[in-house]
């Protein structure tokens, strides 16, 4: 396989896996208990990670934001508004996705990779059980749903942390800080679009990598690393693509 055909094979495999997963979800939805268990796993694996990261991000961003703002003019009344807007459009969804990609994406790739190299996938197949339907579909649904839940959680944590910093260090009243003054519906849609696309791509990229595992535990390790790298990369690219698309759409309306 040349580098070029390998490069083209990945998007095709991803799209096929996505298609198979969606078809399985529609035609033979997994039992809700399975999905709830998976949602719990996704949340459990990433919630502390997200709380800590987004908490510090909130503190640091508000601290830097206030310091920089004060250089221009001595008015911090709109710092909260700007911060919350950026959190909704950008940092909430994207940082959450980076966390989920690392924690959950690696988990999915390791699980599936292990199943492949220990013949569990073949054992499913010989029992006429589709591994996509049985393993991938519930995890996919769980990640898509939990991305929304975790992003909201992340925005709340970051905003609270930012509010505390603004209040204690810069004497910005929490009432002043907590405002949606700068948030437009368009920004919310951008945020939601990102969350959805991240939620769709993380489990699919991770699962595809797991399915390609070969050759024992070393192969599982490689597929896990590949899953993390590819999902992080996908999140960054999607962030850029959505931001670009939003920019173009907004230009049309002005």
């Amino acid at each position: 396989m040349t580098l070029a055909t390998g490069f083209m094979a990945l998007p095709r495999n991803l799209l096929r896996l996505l298609g198979e997963t969606v078809v399985a979800l529609v035609l033979r939805p997994p039992p809700w208990r399975t999905v709830v268990t998976q949602m719990y796993n996704v949340g459990f694996r990433s919630v502390v990670f997200i709380a800590v990261t987004l908490g510090f991000l909130g503190l640091i961003t508000v601290y830097q934001g206030c310091i920089q703002a004060l250089k221009v003019l001595p008015d911090l009344s709109m710092v909260g508004a700007a911060f919350i807007n950026v959190m909704i459009m950008e940092f909430g969804p994207t940082i959450t996705a980076l966390m989920v990609a690392t924690r959950v994406g690696s988990g999915i790739a390791a699980e599936l990779g292990t199943m492949v190299v220990t013949d569990q996938v073949e054992a499913l197949e010989v029992s006429n059980t589709d591994p996509v339907e049985y393993v991938v579909a519930p995890r996919f649904l769980a990640v898509v749903v939990m991305m929304f839940v975790l992003t909201i959680f992340a925005i709340l944590v970051a905003t609270l942390a930012g509010m505390v910093m603004a209040d204690l260090r810069f004497q910005v009243n929490p009432h002043t800080f907590l405002t949606l003054a700068y948030v437009e519906w368009g920004d919310v849609y951008i945020g939601l679009t990102k969350v959805f696309l991240y939620g769709v791509s993380i489990p699919i990229i991770a699962a595809e990598s797991g399915f390609r595992a070969s050759g024992g535990s070393e192969g599982v390790g490689q597929s896990t690393t590949r899953a993390v790298v590819n999902t992080l990369f996908a999140v960054i690219i999607l962030d850029f693509v959505v931001a670009g698309a939003a920019f173009i759409i907004r230009m049309q309306f002005e």
């Binding site: 073949e122 010989v126 029992s127």
Partner: peptide, 16 residues
């Protein structure tokens, strides 16, 4: 066909 086949795999392939 697979409905008519039962397999014990060399490395067991039990669902963990």
């Amino acid at each position: 066909l697979r409905d008519r086949i039962g397999v014990q795999f060399q490395n067991l392939a039990l669902f963990d």
